[in-house]
Design a protein around this nucleic acid. Structure first.
Lengths: 107, 107
DNA sequence: TATCTATGTTGACACATGTCGAACCAGGCG
DNA sequence: CGCCTGGTTCGACATGTGTCAACATAGATA
């Protein structure tokens, strides 16, 4: 899959590229979201039920709010199976972000 | 150098780990900062004078403000040489962030 | 010293965002 | 149907953040 944006050291990003890329980093730029994401990512098969990960010190509506943000950023996807809702990581997006940074670091 | 925090899929991050890691991602979570950072990173030798990168569509004080944030996050360092101030990327921090994501993506 | 240029800092403002409680939806079960 | 439990959405509030104009600072140069 085409990466969203070029490595950070290839050339100065355009305004639009910066907008798209910043949105992804922004999603991981909150401690609560990072803990939620890490909980999902470290779960069996990169997938977890909300009920398994909601003990991060904030109310349940807040958890839901953050999960939604992560989903909008493309970092997570969700699926309802019966009573519970499962969240799953999107490895391709994660890999693209990692490459953006790693390439820029090894210049 | 010891990485700040474990890969995102190794185990759920603690509150403190999440706080530290989120601060770095947050710094890159703004379009203007991302363009500034990309401008520095793509410059000759990963180093650039403020005067070379300040055409990102915001006022000069705002540029200074964002460069300060990037510096506080450990992503850039600055040095005054005569009249001009030069900003330089910190590759180790960049590499650590990249590894955090890349490892989590290849699980 | 005075003065000019290149950056940084301050103060103020508008807007975005994290948080919660309350209300609401979706399934399962009696 | 009624009721319970898991999750989301709504409405409101406090705090955080990006932005600019105005002011302050650091070097160079005269």
């Amino acid at each position: 899959m085409e990466p969203c944006c070029p490595p950070l050291n290839e050339r100065p990003l355009t305004a639009e590229e910066a907008e798209r890329t910043a949105a992804m980093f922004k999603a991981l730029g909150d401690p609560v979201r990072l803990r939620l994401f890490s909980s999902v990512a470290s779960h069996e098969g990169g997938e977890a039920c909300v009920c398994d990960i909601s003990d991060v010190g904030v109310s349940q509506p807040t958890v839901s709010h953050h999960l939604k943000k992560l989903k909008e950023a493309g970092l997570l996807s969700s699926e309802r199976r019966g009573t519970w809702v499962y969240y799953r990581v999107e490895p391709t997006v994660l890999a693209a972000m990692g490459a953006l940074l790693t390439k820029a670091a090894s210049a």
